[in-house]
Design a protein around this nucleic acid. Structure first.
Length: 510
DNA sequence: GCATGATGC
DNA sequence: AGCATCATGC
């Protein structure tokens, strides 16, 4: 009921305000040009403290003895006034307790200096939205329908029968029983038919590449061409929602739609980006290069890795040269690719098995690469041993900015699950610290843009990348401001490097 | 509602 | 192999 909404800012003007989900409040009130200054948000504090709150305070309250209606049910059956009062009372009554718990966990700074200020930044990005041209998507969709129809016919011809290509179950039967192809691997429900399996089969039968193409194109059609169109609003824009209380590492997630997984690598898919357009003159995109590896170099205090970044070397080539005992100039594409896979493995908390799968070599050979890497970068090895030991001792790990993640997997009876817990312990401080730093950069950039009264807007965040809708007269100021804040908001033992690009659509903005 | 498989960093 | 979201089949 918005009939009395205009009195809200008068009533709340000089008060301290505690909320649950200020982002939602912000966007509701923004329509009436009301901006209130919120001091505490229970959804955020409970998230940092590892409570399961989702987007509904009912989860939190009902797990401590209340019986309030879940938001989804209230939407269906109407809101009960008593319920609303109970929730408000709960927010007010528990505020001090939650602040105390944050302080005890050393997360008060994280809460006050990062997560609370970030709410406004995200709400503004969501409110701005990004312009998407539905006609571009429609044209691409029509072309895609034709291509899919063609491929479909070719697949039926090659298979000698018609079947549902989108059903992994039916496809498995065709490939492994009818065509008798090798590498048949079972899942619970049938045969595995994912990319890695199909790639191995490509040289055995021409149907395989057609299936891979069909899978890729139908993903583009259903999720992006059709999916995105459904989210274009009256204003011609897509307004994604950033979830600030979901991931276990501190990253954001993006939903309805997810704008953090718009195709980038595959050329066919990448074309989707042509439909994303600026409202001002152009997009500016700025991304951290090798963010997680730089964070690893810092948290592990690996002098060798740090030196490579200080020298601004191509890190994958550097590691390849060291691993194979050559100079950087002698590194081949294949050597670099292997080194890159090993480095990824390190960031994800390596196992010989996992790396072997990825490189399609035996686990034993993969383990040799890993050992070689440890020899070259003893600091990284020490870090990995230390963080796993600490995780077993404490039951949790923390990021550089004290974000905490409890790892229950480490107490599991199952060896595989404990191993997975060790990988989580290795990866979370790296991924989480990167997320912390990106959040700090976003807040600084947002505030400085506001201070300087810039009309350009921050629109999207994709983990290590920010996208702005830029006015041409603000181009130079914005570019300098963004780079300076991203590179300098946090000082590590290695420099951060930010690269940027401009474009009149998102496709052009490499 | 779960499993599978596509997409991103 | 770490962290995610969405579409589809069954």
């Amino acid at each position: 009921d918005r009939s009395n909404v205009s009195i809200i800012d008068k009533v709340l003007n000089d008060k301290k305000i505690f909320t649950f989900d200020q982002n939602k409040n912000f966007i509701l009130l923004k329509r009436d040009n009301i901006e209130i200054d919120v001091s505490d948000d229970l959804m955020i504090s409970s998230y940092l403290l590892n409570y399961n709150t989702k987007d509904d305070i009912a989860y939190l309250m009902n797990s401590s003895g209340y019986d309030v209606t879940f938001y989804q049910n209230s939407l269906k059956n109407g809101f009960d006034k008593k319920d609303i009062l109970l929730k408000a009372r709960f927010i007010y009554d528990t505020r001090d307790k939650y602040i105390e718990m944050l302080e005890k966990e050393e997360m008060l700074d994280l809460y006050k200096d990062i997560e609370m200020p970030l709410i406004t930044v995200l709400a503004n990005m969501e409110y701005s939205g990004i312009r998407v041209d539905r006609n571009i998507l429609k044209d691409m969709d029509e072309e895609m329908s034709l291509r899919l129809k063609e491929i479909e016919t070719e697949i039926y011809d090659l298979a000698g029968e018609e079947f549902n290509i989108s059903s992994p179950k039916q496809l498995g039967v065709v490939l492994f029983e009818k065509l008798n192809l090798p590498y048949a691997k079972k899942t619970k429900t049938g045969y595995k038919t994912d990319v890695s399996i199909l790639n191995k089969l490509a040289s055995y039968h021409p149907i395989i590449n057609k299936i891979l193409e069909y899978r890729g194109l139908s993903k583009i059609k259903s999720t992006y061409l059709e999916g995105l169109t459904n989210y274009i609003r009256e204003d011609g824009k897509i307004h994604t929602i950033y979830k600030q209380n979901l991931t276990r590492t501190g990253r954001l997630s993006s939903v309805e739609p997810n704008l953090q997984n718009i195709p980038a690598r595959d050329e066919d898919g990448r074309k989707i980006r042509k439909a994303f357009l600026p409202c001002n003159d152009m997009f500016l995109s700025a991304d951290y290069s090798q963010m997680e590896l730089r964070v690893l170099a810092h948290v592990s205090d690996s002098k060798e890795l740090q030196q490579a970044f200080i020298n601004d070397e191509d890190i994958h080539s550097r590691v390849a040269a060291d691993m194979y005992g050559t100079t950087i100039d002698e590194v081949t594409k294949e050597m670099r690719k292997t080194a890159k896979a090993v480095i990824f493995g390190i960031v994800y908390g390596i196992s010989g098995f996992g790396l072997g799968e990825n490189l399609e070599i035996s686990a034993t050979d993969a383990k040799k690469f890993i050992n070689k890497y440890y020899e070259l970068y003893p600091g990284v090895k020490n870090y990995m041993d230390r963080i796993v030991e600490e995780a077993y001792r404490d039951g949790y790990v923390k990021t550089m900015f004290k974000r905490k993640r409890v790892i229950d997997e480490l107490n599991n009876k199952n060896f595989m699950i404990r191993q997975s817990g060790e990988r989580i312990a290795l990866n979370t401080p790296i991924q989480g610290t990167s997320a912390d730093i990106m959040k700090i950069a976003m807040i600084k950039i947002f505030n400085e843009m506001k201070e300087k009264n810039l009309k350009s807007k921050m629109l999207l965040q994709v983990h290590d990348e920010l996208i702005f809708d830029c006015l041409k007269e603000e181009k130079d100021v914005l570019e300098e401001l963004v780079r300076r804040n991203m590179e300098n908001c946090v000082k590590l033992s290695v420099p951060f490097k930010v690269s940027h690009d401009y474009g009149t659509d998102w496709y052009e903005t490499k």
